[in-house]
């Protein structure tokens, strides 16, 4: 197991600090003493085979699932004291279909108790930031899949989160929509500098969106490789065929085949 750049992050630059994380399901350990540091403003992609506990990890990090032991701290604070945004894989089941798209985005802002003017200001800013051209007065089920997931992303970013969690956000979308949404998302995330945890089972997507890629093994989960993705921003669909990208992908694929798939 390579420690990668994790250990090199100075404490004041670390947005997320994970120490000795433990979690087991039915006596089967998924994490037994997992450590991780994530640098502020980084997009960290977590890639691994199905069942390796990627989603378990971000659910624990987002406070949706209790850990059996260890700590996950955000600048020393527990997750409940941190403003977070979370984008679920299944937008159909994550948006509120009884609210219009705009009201879905307003919902977390109302929970924060922001004044109405501020809520409308943020909504307008998000609309401009994501270049929204469809009608947000529609209900979610009247929108396409890509539009619905975009609304989910806007809802998650509306609270101006310190950390954003993306749980396979594009896996239910077609390729063309995925490319569009990916470009849009990286623009906004890089501009806002939001620390982001992205869980994905798509290697191309993980590399294209990430500053750093964490490759996990099968259970019990360890880090197979910790890869710095130093490709220039913005990354477009052209990036996907550039040499740097292809080389990196080839290397990651080799790691995946060797360690992750356990065929070594």
């Amino acid at each position: 197991m390579r420690q990668g750049q994790g250990a090199a992050i100075a404490p004041r630059d670390a947005a997320i600090t994970v120490r000795g994380l433990r979690k087991a399901f039915g006596g089967q350990p998924v994490y037994s003493g997992f450590d991780l540091d994530v640098r502020r403003g980084d997009i960290l992609a977590i890639f691994g085979p199905n069942g390796c506990g990627k989603s378990t990890f971000i659910n624990m990090a987002a406070g949706l699932l209790p850990a059996d032991g260890g700590t996950i701290l955000y600048h020393g604070r527990e997750v409940r004291d941190v403003r977070i945004g979370y984008v679920f894989q299944n937008y159909r089941e994550a948006l509120f279909p009884w609210l219009r798209a705009a009201d879905n985005i307003r919902y977390p802002l109302k929970r924060l108790g922001l004044p109405r003017l501020e809520i409308e200001r943020r909504l307008e800013r998000l609309k401009a930031g994501f270049r929204v051209r469809f009608d947000l007065q529609r209900y979610p089920y009247e929108l396409s899949g890509g539009q619905q997931q975009l609304v989910s992303v806007m809802r998650a970013l509306a609270v101006e989160p310190e950390v954003l969690f993306l749980d396979e956000p594009f896996s239910a979308l077609d390729y063309e929509t995925t490319l569009d949404l990916r470009t849009l998302l990286q623009d906004v995330l890089k501009r806002l500098g939001v620390t982001t945890l992205l869980v994905s089972h798509d290697l191309e997507e993980s590399i294209a969106l990430a500053d750093r890629l964490l490759m996990l093994t099968r259970r019990p989960t360890t880090v197979a490789d910790d890869v710095a993705v130093e490709l220039p921003w913005p990354r477009t669909s052209a990036t996907l065929s550039e040499e740097g990208f292809v080389t990196l992908k080839r290397r990651c694929l080799a790691v995946f085949e060797a360690a992750v798939a356990g065929r070594a």
């Binding site: 987002a62 406070g63 949706l64 979370y86 679920f88 089941e93 994550a94 948006l95 509120f96 929970r111």
Partner: peptide, 10 residues
Amino acid sequence: TRVLAARVMG
């Protein structure tokens, strides 16, 4: 998922 989404949103 909707319950979790609401919880995450505070």
